[in-house]
Structures are given as structure tokens and as C-alpha cells.
């Protein structure tokens, strides 16, 4: 499986040669550095710890982090993630050109936080009529029965905090890869706000194993 870390820069629209206008998300992908290699004998599983987005100011790096990065003589990174990617060793840099245009990828990010939201926005409840004297507008309505179960079932959809959670979008098509600028153009939208961190993987790990 192939994988890289990135940052969402924003969206725009771009023309294809045959004149179609395509919405794309621009992602600054890599160079991501392999900071540590987890091994079966030592750690019980195999994975790469990959870092992205360098911390430039010395005072923002804690001492334990400094020691950790020193092992591979790499700069300190803000975003560290473990990925099961093959073909790289500790100290290697992963760059965008592992992907090419036309590839399908799965992108994981943190969705925009929506705050405390009611049941209509959060769980797509229908709500009540807006007018004609109706006093049942956006309320959830009944959440259970009386004698049995006499309690609210677990996982009942109720108001609460929405957004700001991990979201993966699968099967996004890569429109273009620009190696010199470390940019990747992906067709369609990607979870999270501009400037948010992303994990970009070629399909799911399960699909990768089958090949």
C-alpha cells in the first residue's frame, strides 16, 4: 500500500483538455519523512512512523521529541502518524510522486466542528411543520416507550456535539500531481477545514492485501 501525509490548502476549479470544468481540492502532500520503523520482533507489528509539517522554532519542540527525531537526524514534525506502507526505511522521504494522476485514494481528515447541534441537523430528523400554529418545530419527539423499556435505548439519536471527528472519503480520483511544488490535485471535496492535516492512502489496507 502507498501512503503519504498532507495538508488541505483549499479548493478551486480546473479545466480538462476537452473543456470540462472540474472541482478540485489542492493538497500539499509531503515530503513526509519516515521517523521510525516499527518492527515485528521489537514492537510486535510492522509499520512506519511518518512525520509531516516541520516545526521551525526550536522553543516549540519538547526535549523528548527532540531525542526521538534525533535518531533519524530528521527535523521535528508537527504531524506524526503510523502507516503500513512498504518500501521505505527510517530516514527516507516520501514524496508525492508515489501517486500519479488517475489513481484512486482514500483520504482521512478531521471534519469541521459544528458545535452542539439539534437532531434535525445532526441526524437528519424531519422536524415538524413550520407554521399553522404548530408548536412542534425542531424537537426530536418521542425517544422511547413507557412500561417497557422504561428507559432510553442506547445509541438513540439525540442532540449533541457534531463534527470535529475523523472522516474518511474513499475512492477519490487524483487529477494531477505536481512534484516540484509537492502538490496533489484531487477531484472533489476532502474532509476538514483549509489547513487541516490529511492522511492519504491508496485504497483500504484490506484491498491492498488481496492484491
Amino acid at each position: 500500500m502507498k501512503g503519504i501525509l498532507g495538508k488541505k490548502l483549499g479548493m478551486t476549479q480546473v479545466f480538462t483538455e476537452d473543456g470540462r470544468l472540474i472541482p478540485v481540492t489542492i493538497i500539499e502532500a509531503g515530503p513526509a519523512r519516515v521517523v521510525q520503523k516499527k518492527e515485528k520482533d521489537k514492537d510486535g507489528y510492522e509499520a512506519l512512523q511518518v512525520g509531516f509539517d516541520e516545526i521551525r522554532k526550536e522553543k516549540n519542540i519538547t526535549k523528548p521529541m527532540k531525542g526521538h527525531f534525533k535518531k533519524t537526524s530528521s527535523p521535528a514534525f508537527r504531524f506524526l502518524k503510523e502507516m503500513q506502507v512498504e518500501g521505505f526505511n527510517a530516514g527516507d522521504n516520501i514524496t508525492v510522486d508515489i501517486f500519479s494522476s488517475g489513481d484512486k485514494v482514500a483520504i482521512t481528515g478531521t471534519s469541521k466542528g459544528k458545535g452542539f447541534q439539534g437532531v434535525m441537523k445532526r441526524h437528519n430528523y424531519k422536524g415538524g411543520p413550520g407554521s399553522h400554529g404548530s408548536m412542534f418545530n425542531r424537537a426530536p419527539g418521542s425517544i422511547g416507550q413507557s412500561s417497557y423499556p422504561s428507559r432510553v435505548w442506547k445509541n438513540t439519536a439525540l442532540p449533541g456535539h457534531m463534527g470535529d471527528e475523523r472522516v474518511t472519503v474513499k475512492n477519490l480520483e487524483i487529477f494531477d500531481v505536481r512534484k516540484e511544488q509537492n502538490l496533489m490535485l484531487v477531484k472533489g471535496a476532502v474532509p476538514g477545514a483549509n489547513g487541516g492535516y490529511l492522511i492519504i492512502k491508496s485504497k483500504s489496507p484490506v484491498a491492498a492485501k488481496e492484491n
Binding site: L9, G10, T12, V14, F15, I26, E28, Q181, L183, L185
Partner: peptide
């Protein structure tokens, strides 16, 4: 935002 401008510039 700059990278977006650069990409759009390419289509000028």
C-alpha cells in the same frame, strides 16, 4: 492560498 493562485495562473 498562494498555491491555489499558482495553479489557477497555469490556466491563464
Amino acid at each position: 492560498m498562494d498555491a491555489i493562485k499558482v495553479i489557477e495562473e497555469g490556466y491563464k
